[in-house]
């Protein structure tokens, strides 16, 4: 039972990272009905920035600076590569983000270098005892960060004028424009938010060890998460993120007992398997809106 709960704790940490990433995907999707494949690159850029900044200033100052910088980067990408394509087929825009991802990731990855770098987080491998269960401090921190950021986002969409504008244009872009909403600003804000979220998620994905060149793969696991939660549901993204994180951790823990013949850790492919199973039953995810196709 303890092992199971420890796995759940581990999963909540991973799941928080997924949830943060998934929120970014969903925000962009709601704004422009496009899945941005550039999120992994923004995440990697955030990690690399923090790892460099943490050397000169401390970790707590490095994270906000890096988040702001990646948000600016996302803003620039949106302006240069995405805005000219608004109105084209979503597939085309998605592929452009794929191109952006390749470019940004190569540039950011070049700064990782051969020496092991870390984000300089204060948690490392320390554990904290929560109600008799050992939880890694970094997982607790990720969960807290996710709850705080999620709450802030909720407040942002609920109480600020631009948040209202974003909700309005998610419902109906043209109607929002007719009401004086600047849809361009909405696009830009959504990209900046998504970039910032990816950077935050990256920091927590990279805690507890040296940065791995292939850490961006983690961000792709957020894609099954948003499919599971429903492409246009913020709450669904958080729930599905935590759910997939927990399932993944439980599978990784018990795989040896259940299927001893499998030697490779099946954890990384769990999100995709869960996604495929869910899609067979519910093609629009758990909380997604059914797409109405106009002929």
């Amino acid at each position: 039972m303890t092992a199971f709960l420890e796995a759940v704790g581990e999963g909540l940490g991973t799941g928080s990272v997924y949830a943060l990433l998934a929120l970014g995907f969903v925000i962009i999707y709601k704004a422009m009905q496009v899945i941005s494949f550039a999120q992994p690159a923004f995440m990697l850029a955030g990690i690399v920035l923090v790892s460099y900044l943490a050397e000169s200033v401390n970790f707590w100052a490095a994270v906000p600076i890096a988040v702001a910088a990646v948000a600016l980067l996302a803003l620039a990408v949106e302006r240069v590569a995405i805005r000219p394509m608004v109105g084209k087929a979503v597939f085309v825009i998605a592929i452009i983000t794929l191109g952006v991802d390749v470019v940004v990731r190569v540039v950011a990855g070049a700064f990782i270098g051969v020496d092991p770098r870390s984000v300089g987080d204060p948690w490392g491998q320390e554990v904290v005892n929560v109600a008799g269960i050992d939880m890694a401090q970094r997982n607790v921190a990720a969960l807290i960060a996710m709850v705080v950021v999620g709450g802030l986002l909720f407040a942002f969409f609920r109480f600020t004028p631009i948040g209202l504008a974003m909700r309005a244009s998610a419902l109906d872009q043209e109607a929002a424009m007719a009401q004086g909403v600047n849809v361009g600003t909405v696009f830009a804000t959504s990209w900046a938010l998504a970039g910032g979220l990816a950077a935050v998620a990256g920091v927590f994905a990279a805690t507890g060890g040296p940065i791995d060149q292939n850490i961006w793969i983690v961000a792709l696991a957020a894609l099954p998460v948003i499919i599971l939660g429903g492409l246009d549901s913020l709450g669904g993204a958080v729930l599905a993120g935590l759910l997939i994180g927990v399932v993944q951790a439980v599978v990784a823990t018990y795989q040896r007992d259940w299927v001893p013949s499998l030697e490779t850790n099946a954890g990384p492919i769990v999100p995709y398997l869960v996604m495929m199973l869910v899609l067979l039953v519910r093609p629009y995810g758990l909380f997604g809106t059914k797409e109405v196709e106009r002929v």
């Binding site: 792709l220 995709y272 398997l273 996604m275």
Partner: peptide, 17 residues
């Protein structure tokens, strides 16, 4: 059963699996 970007993500999952 799927269209557009849903399909893209499912086929992406195929690569990992």
């Amino acid at each position: 059963r799927l269209r557009g970007l849903y399909l893209a993500i499912v086929t992406l999952g195929l690569v990992f699996i």
